[in-house]
Every structure is written in C-alpha cells, then in structure tokens.
C-alpha cells in the first residue's frame, strides 16, 4: 500500500502531496532543482505502488510557477505513471493543469503534455 506523501516546498522544489486513500495528488510551486531525478523518485515510487490498487478516481492538481527542462522529463514520467493507472480501467484520472493569467509558456507546456499523454487534461486559468 502506498503511503501518504507530504514533501515541503523549497526555493527550488515544489510541494508534493499525495494521498493514496483519496487518490489526490498536488504539485505546487517551482520545480528547478539541478537533480530532478532524485527529487521526483519518491513520487514515482509511490505512484508505482499505488497503481496496483488505485482509487476509483484520481484528481491531480499541477500548479507550477516555473519548471526547468530537467524537471520536465520527470513530470512526464509522473504523467506516464498516471496514464498507466488511467488505462488500467480501474481508475479514472483527471489532470488539472493550472497556469497563471498571461503565462502563455505555462499554458503551452500543459498543452505539450496533453498531446503526449493519454489522460484527460483540464486547463485551469488562475489569477496572479
């Protein structure tokens, strides 16, 4: 059984909250660490475990202010895990991609992922 994940944010890394009981995953803040693979490993491992017995629904909230290209690959790995869970048929996953008003780069980044990953995305505009 996957355990509750509660990672506090730093100037270079986002808050990560994952509750395997409710199936809610939140990623908030900035993600610009030099070593992203190391930072995202606990979440990837947790999702791997969760995928064996997922909740019926999974709500994912991505609300990033900045992310570097090194994180972008790790975020894709997270989404690939979600895609695997969604495709399994026992869980319905929704990714809410938040972007701040006027932040076209962040909206575009969300659309790039949407084009690669077979999971429903919802683009959510938020006020600055």
């Amino acid at each position: 059984m996957a355990e509750l994940l509660n990672i506090e944010g730093t100037p270079k890394t986002p808050v990560i909250k994952f509750d395997p009981i409710t199936g809610k995953l939140d990623l908030k803040g900035r993600s610009i660490p030099e070593n992203s693979i190391e930072f995202y490993k606990p979440l990837i491992d947790s999702l791997e475990l969760f995928s064996t017995a997922p909740t019926k629904e999974m709500s994912v909230n991505i609300h990033l202010e900045y992310f570097n290209t090194s994180s972008s690959k790790c975020i894709l790995d997270v989404f690939k895990k979600l895609e695997y869970i969604h495709k399994g048929g026992n869980s319905s996953v929704l990714i809410n991609w938040h972007y701040e008003q006027d932040d076209e780069d962040m909206l575009e980044a969300g659309e790039d992922y949407q084009a690669i990953i077979a999971v429903p995305f919802k683009m959510v505009e938020v006020e600055e």
Partner: peptide, 23 residues
C-alpha cells in the same frame, strides 16, 4: 521548435543527470 521540444521530451534521450537535450 515546439514540435522538436515535444519530440525530444517524449523520446527521452537524456543524460543521467537529467540535463542536456531540452535545455
């Protein structure tokens, strides 16, 4: 550039450190 970025992102092809490629 947008298409190329998506291509490199989806293919992986990263160094162990996670840099390179997309920067």
């Amino acid at each position: 550039l947008k298409e190329f970025y998506k291509e490199v992102l989806a293919e992986g092809g990263f160094s162990e450190k996670g840099g390179g490629g997309l920067g």
